[in-house]
Amino acid sequence: MSLIEVRDLTKDYRLNVKKRGLLGAVQSLLVPEYKLKRAVDNINFSIEKGEMVGFIGPNGAGKSTTVKMLTGILSPTSGSIMMGGLSPHKDRKKNASRIGAVFGQRTQLWWDLPVADTYDLLRYIYRIPEKKFEQNMEMFNDLLGIQEFMSQPVRQLSLGQRMRADIAAALLHDPEIVFFDEPTIGLDVVAKEKIREFIKKINAEKNTTMLFTTHDMLDIEKTCKRMIIIDQGTIIYNGTVEQIKERYGRSRTLVAEFAQKLDRIDLPAGVELIDQKDNKKYLKFNRDEIQVSGLIAELTSKYNILDLTVTEPEVEAIIREIYEGGIDFDKGISGDSKKSLSEQYCVPC
């Protein structure tokens, strides 16, 4: 049994249908009319202890809704969540002491007080033993450098500092499971890197289970082995980051720099000229259909070439293509990709 087991999880929001006018307002107060909005639609997945899983999807896909159900804030419309034998919603208080959560868009720190005060309060709320508290503070300070702004009121912190402080706050009580909802939102490259390093380190040292949502694919590539992609409430991919590159990143681009500017070149079938700049030409092809070595041999035999590079598509580009509907999963792997993948995958990373 995995640490987190999500079975047939569905969440419907009820949207009030507002009527116009005063009469309408009274009417909708007395006899409310609802429209159902399915935010999460029958999803299944499981996460092993110590795993780090990226949870991605376009805006409005249902990520935050899922995280809210996993943290016990919302109750599922149907389906079940089991977290080490507890239901996050029904056993909310019991479960709460084992989990931590960071909502990047909001802060859990006291706005007008120094960070240290919030930590002190959390120490009481989670009944953290003095010794552990000090150890953790020291560790977080080493990794996140929170000491430098420890005594400043939170309202004076920069976004990056605040986020670091917030992450430390969520991890102070050594939670078994941590949920991150967009922990890197609005941060610069260096700050993001720092947070990724930190998360990885905590995962390695404390064997903490983590799930995090983000819109930055680099976050996922650098921290998680596995990712779950959700779109319009359903899981469309659940597997390793490598696998997705393997399976869907089949196109390659060959950048060839010629000795002189050529108006046109002869290309074998299946190779497409997608761009050209000065003497450079960008040639796209599918690696299943065309062998790179063959293509290079052919080109060098015909033309005088100075330089050659082959690039794989970034995960980002693959994901973009998936969101835009360019890759069809149902035909992609197997007819039943959603289920089979979630079941076949059970190696913790």
Binding site: T71, G72, I73, K93, A96, S97, R106, Y126
Partner: peptide, 14 residues
């Protein structure tokens, strides 16, 4: 309105 309530709901207190 500010979502403070959600924060309370993830704590081990009433």
């Amino acid at each position: 309105y500010t979502g403070e309530l959600d924060r309370y709901l993830i704590r081990p207190l009433g």
